Simulated assay, not measured.
Amino acid sequence: MKRIEVEKRTILIGLAGSHGYGLNRPESDYDYRGVFIAPKRYYLGFDQIEQKDSDWDEVGIFSFLDGNKDTVIYELRKIIQLLAGANPNVLELLWLNHYPVLTSVGQYLINHRKIFLTKKVKHTYSGYAFAQIKKMETHRKWLLNPPTKKPVPSDFGIEDEAPLSKEELNAFLEYLYNLVKGKIEYLEKAETLYKLLTADIDFKAILKQYTLPDETLEYTQKLTNSRKDFIRLLQKSQSYQIALREWKAYLSWQENRNPVRAEMERKSGFDLKHGMHCIRLLRSGLEILRTGELIVDRRIAGDVNELKAILRGDYSYEQVMKMATDLMTEIQKVDEESILPEKPDLEKVNELCIKLVEIQGWDD
């Protein structure tokens, strides 16, 4: 859809990112997030759209978006799905302080925002925080012990045959995931395990991100009816592709680092921004579980100065990791005591989505 078409049917746009958190600096970019309701043909026809995240140099209505590359406006059904899944980056959109665009339909969505707050936030906020930790650890490893050469198949014992490609690996692991899921789906005693692998964690992503451990190879071979030599090649190819992916990420990191951020990272020994966001996410998740409210602006939450101190490098890597560990432990405890529902009421969520579309109407 053209920018102007999206903006005509936009129900809200909020100022997110560092400005939303109260952590912005003079040089900080402006991050805008919004919601629009697509016209009839996208609901009843074959056309599809999930979000508008580019081409902000087109003719539009809202001049403050002109040329802004840090803008995403989600289609209603897409954002409702993300909200129901307790996506941290999307949940905060309904709790911002500043909305340059807010229609009555957008306000109606905000008025019903609490139906999206559930105990799912324990997993999503902790998961997003853990992703920040992994980035910190990766960058720290690159700082202290940078890779010296591009990996080759022979480094992983692949000598006389070609390694499996990324596409071949992903196809096999998708097949493996469905076999594992099918094995436990109808076993009553495995109900908790099935929920873990299909709802609580992204098991498919884990399969594709890490090399299969040795102790799983025999079972994988039998489950997939594969040859032993193929399974060994699979494992070696995974290790090679993961190393290759990390090498490419290292080169990209070197080439695209912000010079100021890179210098701070060099002095402190870790990525300060990832450290700050890790702590922010964990504290936000903890607040939701404890109070049933989401506080985006950290000036209101009262920890803005401490988060800024992390960004300045006032805390060591070890201190930030200790903060994260303590917060993870506290989240586990508070989750057990929280009065939030385990999951969203999907019937209410569906009714809200329908109501918003009805209020907006079908006119282009």
Rank of each mutant, 00 (worst) to 15 (best):
L12C: 04
V320S: 00
Q107M: 08
A131V: 01
L346T: 08
S28L: 13
P153W: 08
D57W: 10
Y42L: 09
N145H: 06
R140D: 12
I184V: 06
E167W: 08
K135M: 15
Y210H: 12
P153F: 03
L311I: 11
E287I: 09
L76R: 00
N24G: 08
V304F: 14
R299A: 04
P344W: 03
L207H: 05
L327H: 01
I201Q: 03
G60M: 07
L169Y: 11
D297Q: 10
I49H: 04
I279Y: 02
S28A: 11
K267T: 10
D363V: 15
H123M: 12
K248D: 10
I339W: 14
L212N: 11
V349Q: 03
P153S: 04
L282F: 06
R298C: 08
L82C: 05
K52I: 06
I201A: 05
G269D: 09
R245H: 13
G14H: 04
E7A: 00
T10W: 08
P88W: 10
A309C: 00
V72W: 04
H274D: 12
V334L: 10
R113A: 11
K149S: 13
E255C: 13
Y108E: 14
D303Q: 06
N111L: 14
L144P: 00
D57F: 08
I300A: 14
K120E: 06
H277E: 05
E347M: 10
I37A: 03
L23S: 03
K8N: 07
A16R: 01
Q241H: 10
H19E: 05
N87L: 13
Q319R: 14
M321T: 05
T325C: 06
E161W: 01
E351A: 14
E255W: 06
R77H: 12
Y210Q: 09
I73W: 03
G14P: 02
A162T: 13
I80M: 15
L91C: 02
E287S: 10
H139P: 00
E75W: 05
G292Q: 08
G14M: 09
V152M: 05
P100D: 09
E265F: 01
K40W: 03
P26G: 07
L94K: 00
I80D: 09
I206E: 15
G20Y: 04
A190I: 09
K120G: 10
I11G: 02
V72L: 02
K134H: 12
I4S: 14
D70H: 15
L15E: 03
T138S: 08
Y177W: 11
K120H: 09
W56C: 00
V349M: 11
I13K: 07
K8H: 06
I115V: 13
D363C: 11
E174W: 09
R257F: 04
N68D: 13
N89D: 15
Y42M: 01
A16Q: 01
P213T: 07
P151H: 01
Y175S: 13
I310G: 00
R290A: 04
K308G: 12
I201V: 15
N145I: 02
M321P: 00
D326L: 13
A86M: 05
Y125T: 01
